[in-house]
Design a protein around this nucleic acid. Sequence first.
DNA 1: ACACCAAATGTAGTAATTTTACAACTTTTT
DNA 2: AAAAAGTTGTAAAATTACTACATTTGGTGT
Lengths: 284, 284
Amino acid sequence: MNILEKITQNKSAFSKSERKVADIILANPQTAIHSSIATLAKMSDVSEPTVNRFCRRLDTKGFPDFKLHLAQSLANGTPYVNRHVEEHDGPDEYTKKIFESTMASLEVARQSIDINIVNRVVDLLTQAQKISFFGLGASASVAHDALNKFFRFNVPVVYFEDILMQRMSCMNSCEDDVVVLISHTGRTKSLVEIAQIARANDATVVGITSKNSPLSRECNLVLSLEVPEDTDMYMPMASRIAQLTLIDILATGFTLRRGGKFRENLKRVKDTLRGSRFEKRTDN
Amino acid sequence: MNILEKITQNKSAFSKSERKVADIILANPQTAIHSSIATLAKMSDVSEPTVNRFCRRLDTKGFPDFKLHLAQSLANGTPYVNRHVEEHDGPDEYTKKIFESTMASLEVARQSIDINIVNRVVDLLTQAQKISFFGLGASASVAHDALNKFFRFNVPVVYFEDILMQRMSCMNSCEDDVVVLISHTGRTKSLVEIAQIARANDATVVGITSKNSPLSRECNLVLSLEVPEDTDMYMPMASRIAQLTLIDILATGFTLRRGGKFRENLKRVKDTLRGSRFEKRTDN
DNA sequence: ACACCAAATGTAGTAATTTTACAACTTTTT
DNA sequence: AAAAAGTTGTAAAATTACTACATTTGGTGT
């Protein structure tokens, strides 16, 4: 995707003159996007068609199209080509990289989401008698967060960390209940079992998990998030952020569906917290 | 900076025909950057010079320059100008808006972070005898997530939801303990009290909270995150994502500080989970 | 070492695109 | 109601990018 990355990668496949062009562009990409093909050719000390051929080699339609791609790469705030954290990275580098990769993952997640399913899940949630959120490990905190959000809506909402409690809760579920199961991989055995139990008791099971996973096959509805996880760190990071954002979306859809008066009620819930807080000074 | 925002802002200052152009571009910016001035003029049902004049009114050098700016704005992940969810928004709109506002908030958060403090906090954490993560309400799930991450590092790590448990834990803390307190507003009374208790017992208190808040004044180190929160929804959304990303950064810094061997250990922790999961089919 | 072939590069002309200059039309003001 | 200011479109000019072809370069086999 990123064209600057592409240039450095393919550099070896370029010809001598094309490499001249590549060097000039990499050295000063900001100037490149504001130059015509003629000036760029002169700067690189090659002919204009060479610049054009260079652009095509990078799978762009031509020079103007190349400039567009380049402009986008520069805009992303991704001067750093590699978003993966490396051994020798200092705090400034890994901070930058983690922010950038998180944002990039959100972008990917956004594109992978099926709006129709979002809508249907919101439908289900608004009509539910009881809503349960279950997840294990890293996804437990996501379920925890969902509890916090939906609790404000004054609907019966359930969350357990303990798998036995989760099972018991699902055994007692009935037709108008919705069980939301969260798992990045969708391979956690006990969650799959819980999905089965919930369905056996006529509850509707919604999975926030990956497509074609064992868990997804047990769900009535699957909100799949295809998030590239940086496996170097051996920790779920981006996937969990995407799940949380999805929770935000469901919660938002929920409040919108309930209408304006409902939102006023939310405000009251928030105001209730005031007693537990220090007042904000009004002099700033 | 962002040209799409600029268009909607200046929309009232435009002439009738220019507004036609603005509408077409706002409706389909992705198409606009790949069109010539002629096709865009035809789509907007105006003449080519009108499009050109439109571009100049937005302080660009001309149509190609305008396309460059537009491309950059789109790359930034900010196609829709208004990121605030509104009453009448459909699922596609609020989904898009929430993703975009979340990403935008991360960008703001990134810029507000003080790398030096990140580095010092990582220092503290690597040297800590015991690490505690406490938060209440929406921040509880962030603390919960931090527990999940740091637990993998094989360091004594503590997390409680219950404020009495939090207090007791802090009373028993000693010099080499680090207490991380998470609160978006920094005005939650009991958390401020916990900070005081922890400090009285010689623990180092790190706050993930906003600058100049009551909580921040009680901390030894403050990682301040200035995140614009969309208060219309009366729910913490973006702030919490930023906090989680910060936790990711601290965890990453922690593993990097500990070196390569430590990371192998992490892999083993992850592998241990395998027994509780369904195997991934290898045929895809 | 020379001839030959293929790949690479440049030249010059062509096509597409954008911009300018000016004329016609609309709207507003007096 | 006429003039002025502002807006929009037409057509030509200028810029810019692209194509076809010619030349050069570098490598390979005899």
